[in-house]
Amino acid sequence: MPKREPSDSRTATGTVPGRAPVHRIRWWTELPLVLLVYGAYSAGRLLARGDVGTAVDHGLAILRAEKALWMNAEHPLNRLFTDHTWIGVPADFWYASLHYVVTPAVLIWVFRSHRVHYRAARSWLLISTFIGLIGFTLFPTCPPRLLEASHGFVDTMAQYSSYGWWGAEASAPRGLGGMTNQYAAMPSLHVGWALWCGVLLWKYGRGPLLRTAAVAYPLITVIVVMGTANHYFFDAVAGAAVMGLGLLLTKPALRCAERLRARYAGVRRVAVDADPTAGSSPIVGGECQTAAGERIPRQRKQSAEAAEQGPRPSDAGDSTPAPAR
């Protein structure tokens, strides 16, 4: 029975007939890229500190707008988390750790199980993160926990700091609070990254467990960021909006990257055509490289036999048939 060809057959150049070239994605090139972008994001947060007075004014303006629209869910949630340790402590652990664990775990899962969608998922995350960094720079915002006590918020991270590794200053490890920007609150990328994870789990996951996690993770994250007094509700809305904008920009960004890659490949091809001998070396037998004039042993033996037999008709340029032996 003839063997069936795979439906996604690729040519020798790594392309699918009728489609754009397929670029192989390898983890050892992706990992440095993700770490580089995350490092730039962390450094950008520190640089985008802004004026404290301006950040407080922005926070109070958001709080007043929410109260005017009857959307002030932060106060009741914060009182619930403050009064009940069994709710507040897990919420602080959720806020301080899960976005560092779940986000890369989902990215690795997509890379391993749904690699054809990986570039789009990774680009969506990185583009949205950079948009969030712009928001931190242009609109520094004082989170509810850093407002004056008269506004009725309690910093649960400080209240329950003895239960975890974080300190009283921020969700950073104890003693490293000065290495984070506490006014980088608008938009909430805790919510944005959780939404990204939820969309991918819902879209590519199979089974009720992953579908439940896809809905529960971003929803609980929204509740946690407000109950711990780290974000306003509008911060969460802005985080979702940033992810939506990043999603819209992902396809144009990928097309632009493909054009740049094609142009770079074209420049290299022109350079090779202009100097065909650049980087070339004599090759014998496909993989065996030899110096100029050097012959491998079998080649010497074949040359000696050819000399004994005499010149071939084609070598002498004579069309007369060779005499029978």
Rank of each mutant, 00 (worst) to 15 (best):
G53D: 13
V237K: 03
A73C: 04
S319C: 14
V116W: 07
R259A: 13
A158S: 14
Q182T: 13
E74V: 12
L209H: 06
V154G: 03
G317R: 03
K3Q: 11
V154D: 10
A105W: 04
A322W: 10
Y118A: 07
R312F: 09
S188G: 02
K67F: 03
V101S: 02
A168Y: 08
W165C: 07
Y100T: 04
A65S: 06
G39A: 06
M226S: 07
A73H: 01
L176N: 03
L107C: 12
A271V: 11
R174C: 10
D275F: 01
Q159P: 09
R268W: 13
V37W: 03
R325M: 14
L146E: 05
S150G: 14
G205P: 03
V110Y: 01
T129W: 07
T15W: 08
P143T: 08
H114I: 03
A240V: 11
T290E: 12
R312I: 06
M186E: 00
A213S: 11
E308P: 05
L189M: 14
Q289L: 15
V52D: 13
P2Y: 04
S150F: 09
A149N: 12
I223Y: 03
R26A: 12
W166Q: 05
V270L: 13
T320A: 15
A61M: 07
A271M: 05
A257Y: 13
D8R: 13
F136I: 07
V191W: 00
W196H: 11
K301Q: 14
P282I: 00
A322E: 13
I283E: 12
R49V: 08
T212N: 06
D318Q: 09
A105H: 00
F139S: 07
R269L: 11
